[in-house]
Amino acid sequence: MASTVVVDYGMGNLRSMAKALEHAGAGDVRVTDDAETIAAADRVVFPGQGAARDCMSALHAHELVDVLGESMVRKPFLGACMGMQVLLAWSEENGGIDLLGRFPGRIRHFRHHFTAKDTGLKVPHMGWNRVRQTTSHPLWAGIDDGEWFYFVHSYYAEPDEDALVLGRTDYGGPFASVLGRGNIFATQFHPEKSHDAGVRLLANFVRWDGAA
């Protein structure tokens, strides 16, 4: 049976993610911070919540940067929420912080995204919003274009390349809510909290061979 690891670096509750993956048919699911276990796994789920600075220092403290880097080259890799944001190069959160730099681009606060007409929009962007699929992808199988997913975030991704964007969501104008390339698929929303559509996405992930 193929194994899936949920990377635990102390940033938030991972129980829901592990349970949702089991529910999606992942079989062997382990929540771990052990680099060897991550290296040995067939697929990697990289969640996370909280502040960018804390996430990056936790990754360094748990000595996970190298093994994550290797996983991102080869295995089916799913980032979610902060686990998507840290794939970019830099975030303006916490006064500016370097991220993992897998994808060129940066993370910015929503205030930069809003225009004068958006004054009523709240931050965090919290709740259910639609995701427009900008390209076909194995992980979109069985999921409607424009399906609802659950979001909670105050910062958003601005990738340098449009080709990295797999989905967009409208909050004061469209922003990149799903990024990916090759074996990496990363969502700003929480699939583990997005009801049937989220579980379907996870089910697609655990069957995915990593080819886009």
């Binding site: 129980r15 829901s16 349970k19 949702a20 529910h23 659950y150 583990e192 909290k193 997005s194 009801h195 989220g198 579980v199």
Partner: peptide, 11 residues
């Protein structure tokens, strides 16, 4: 919470 979060995948 543990029991509900194991089965219900909404916030």
């Amino acid at each position: 919470v543990e029991a509900v979060a194991s089965e219900v995948f909404i916030p």
